[in-house]
Design a binder for these strands. Sequence first.
DNA 1: GTCCAGGGCCTAC
DNA 2: GTAGGCCATGGA
Length: 221
Amino acid sequence: MSNFQILTSIYKTLLKTFGHQNWWPAETADEIIIGAILTQNVSWNNVEKAIINLKQYNLCTLEQIHHSNIDEIAPLIRSTLYFNRKAKKLQNFTEFLFTYYNGDVCKMFQTEIRTLRKQLLQINGIGEETADSILLYAGAKPVFVIDAYTKRIFTRLGLTRQNWNYAEYQKFFMKNLPEDIELFNDYHAQIVYLGKHFCKRKPLCDECPLNSFCERNKLSI
DNA sequence: GTCCAGGGCCTAC
DNA sequence: GTAGGCCATGGA
């Protein structure tokens, strides 16, 4: 089987097992961007608490965050770990948005995708995964998001290498999948669901839905 | 009590 | 260019 067939087949297996994930779990583009920053290295449960707090205090839009200060935001996002830094990161993003796009997210997403990605990466606190999450889930741009689960799972499958950098992982997926925003959206979401429930740092458990897939295709996990 | 979650920055070699 | 420390909550 080619990598194209393997990646497609894995997605079909996950979709059939878990159902469509309907990502990103948020109501607005602003919330997606805020969530993408807050979820860095922390479970989504912790982020949800922070989002609820921000909404309660009318600080869950980028404009509201831009017009607040770090001392106001930090206590509301305590649950997301590194809350002082993340409060600063949120404001770094809004500072960028208001400086270059007059605070208009739609206008920001009209920028050519490679250019915008470079701009996002220049913001202190926005790395490659966060930038790509923003592009894909808030901006509906065709980029594949790579996270720790993706690296772990596909390296265990023998399809990728642990020492690859972010760009190498991303290239592997984007070269071997059709450029389909909806597919990129749900594929990453499926990987996160799989990772959360079946592929923690310890070896995969017996119930992993990919086990039978691996057996059929002579892959080890 | 220990481990680890949907990272990224900074510093030292 | 890269390994290692730092940030510093909450659930299992």
